[in-house]
Design a binder for these strands. Structure first.
Ligand SMILES: [Mn+2]
Ligand SMILES: [Mn+2]
Ligand SMILES: [Zn+2]
Ligand SMILES: [Zn+2]
Lengths: 166, 166
DNA sequence: TATGATATTGATAATCTTTATCAATATTCA
DNA sequence: TGAATATTGATAAAGATTATCAATATCATA
């Protein structure tokens, strides 16, 4: 379910097609940010992306990160995620297909899941309500298998709170 | 499904019990904000609550609104809602029971729904994954019955974007 | 390859939302 | 009533995201 680390040529291709079709130019910083995003498997915040991108290219600025992530979102390669901690994260979309999230409130882990039966019932619900669905978000909060277990080794507390990102 | 307008005595009772149990004092501004929140049926932002509260009591400040809404959340009377537009809204919880949302991207309408079958499947999904669920959020975005209809009378555009709240 | 049109960038200012500070005030209870 | 202290509102501060803008990079074309 999770994207394997390593930049996928296909994703770069998608982005190149997107920029071409928009009449955008190629640029080093944009490419660096794109690769940073693609190389990471986690759900990163803008600030985390900035730090990682600067390891490749110390000159990239915040604004360009936000600008690029917006482009990536528009190109369908990425999606913004707003969970209960209030932070905005970016997640891979290409090659993932739609999925929902199980979010551990204790260790912060974020598991991606799909349940076709649930999806079907959602469609049925919308139909009943006369609602034409475009997309949806389902997040289930609780304790992951590890954190809920016998907790012989309680995993590190990593529940993220807003403003804790430094 | 929606809370009927008009302050419910029971909700005030719940809050009084909550404050008493916490050793908090009674205060006019807090009461004004509580009643403002209870009187409104919509999903309001902090800023909207502030404006409405000031119609009752022009002296209330922003800080007290945030402080009070936090108390209301802790008391179980209200819940924070973060939808895709990025704004934080507060919604009634007491007398509502758990529910999910159908959100119209065109007119901004927010319909509350419950589908027991979906809830059951979510439980099953978590069980399969070894995940101990605490609560969840499901939001379905699209066009409401009115906006999706023959649109003889296209409803006012009210799709809210961040920072448009003035 | 040089060049001009213009897309892009990064530093920084500006916004917006939420929280922290703190002196003044209100509430509670002996 | 009078102290103890919880509460408030104005305002500063913090964080996150966006807007501004002069400098620079990109690219089609000559
Ligand atoms: Mn889903
Ligand atoms: Mn639900
Ligand atoms: Zn966990
Ligand atoms: Zn609508």
């Amino acid at each position: 379910m999770a994207t394997k680390a390593g930049v996928t040529a296909r994703e770069i291709e998608v982005f190149d097609r997107f920029t071409a079709q928009r009449g955008l130019r190629h640029s080093r910083p944009r490419r660096d940010i794109l690769c940073t995003f693609l190389d990471e498997d986690r759900h990163l915040t803008a600030d985390e992306i900035l730090r990682l991108a600067r390891r490749r290219n110390p000159r990239v600025g915040v604004a360009t990160v936000y600008r690029t992530m917006k482009l990536l979102t528009e190109s369908g390669l990425c999606r913004e995620l707003r969970i209960e901690d209030g932070a905005v994260r970016y997640e891979h979309l290409f090659g993932h297909g739609h999925h929902d999230h199980l979010i551990c409130s204790q260790c912060g882990r974020l598991e991606e899941v799909v349940d076709p039966a649930i999806e079907r019932l959602q469609d049925r619900l919308c139909e009943q309500k006369g609602f034409v669905a475009d997309h949806h978000r389902l997040e289930i909060y609780g304790r992951c298998r590890t954190c809920a277990g016998f907790r012989k080794t309680p995993p590190r507390q990593r529940s993220v709170r807003r403003g804790e990102s430094r």
